[in-house]
């Protein structure tokens, strides 16, 4: 069993333990709530648990965006309808569904065809950011570690290491080691104006840098089935396929 598999195994184990405790999990996400429901539990159980848990949120606003995560919506259409009706009726919230598998940006067919309600007026107001913005040169021996996205206004020298839970964006020369999507986020990318890293890692994938002269264009590294691939940012146009602005 490789290290990565072991890690996956551990994570799975943890999930099952948690879910045993309760059939409903509630998490804050942005300005709303993310509710995860155990689809194997009886519906009556789920609704009563939901009701009990949400009663404590006595200041729940009308139209609070709530995302309901019940695995695949198509499979559990009835369950979704029951739960969302229950939530709308009792708490007057705005319910949306979420699939368990994360969407890969480069796969156009996976993208939802209808934008979420909050984008419908064409304006997107973001009050909180999930990115760490740093200015300055990262020198040899220095290490930067963040659980969010990482944006560096400056260069990353050889011998330096930058690591992020999400994407790594270097507005300058990347010559050190860059780690994106730590620990397990395959969707992360690494972008640099001058892409000459010693090594890059995205989630569990590792790629060694080549001693090459600057290509003169912005480059982007992402995980494809065959491993980490580096594209010219303007040629691949990866994010132009996204139909409306989305939070990463």
């Amino acid at each position: 069993m490789s290290q990565e598999e072991k890690l996956n195994f551990l994570v799975k184990d943890k999930k099952t333990i948690k879910e045993k405790k309760s059939v409903i999990r509630i998490k804050g996400s942005g300005s709303g709530l993310l509710i995860t429901a155990d689809t194997t539990a009886p519906v009556a159980n789920l609704t009563s648990e939901l009701g009990n848990r949400l009663k404590r949120f006595n200041k729940l606003d009308q139209n609070t965006p709530v995302t309901l995560d019940i695995g695949e919506k198509n499979k559990h259409g009835f369950l979704f309808k029951t739960l969302s009706d229950f939530l709308k009726k009792n708490f007057g919230v705005d319910v949306d569904s979420k699939s368990n598998s994360r969407q890969h940006l480069s796969k156009l067919e996976d993208l939802p065809t209808k934008p979420p309600k909050k984008y419908l007026d064409g304006n997107l107001n973001v009050y909180r950011t999930n990115a760490q913005l740093l200015a300055g040169r990262v020198r040899s021996g220095q290490k930067i570690n963040t659980r969010s996205h990482l944006i560096i206004l400056g260069d990353v020298n050889p011998g330096a290491e930058v690591s992020a839970g999400g994407d790594v964006i270097v507005l300058g020369s990347l010559r050190g080691t860059a780690l994106a999507g730590q620990q397990n986020n395959d969707n992360s990318v690494i972008i640099a104006f001058d892409f000459r890293p010693t090594q890059i890692q995205i989630a569990g994938h590792v790629a060694a840098g080549q001693n090459s002269s600057p290509s003169g264009c912005i480059e982007i590294a992402s995980v494809e089935p065959e491993g980490i691939v580096v594209y010219s940012y303007s040629e691949i146009n990866m994010f132009n396929k996204v139909p409306w602005p989305q939070m990463r």
């Binding site: 020198r139 040899s140 021996g141 220095q142 020298n157 050889p158 011998g159």
Partner: peptide, 16 residues
């Protein structure tokens, strides 16, 4: 030399 530049970079970081 690359090795010297690497070490100098580290030292500059420590001095700064």
């Amino acid at each position: 030399e690359v090795s010297s530049v690497r070490d100098a970079d580290r030292v500059i970081g420590l001095l700064l």
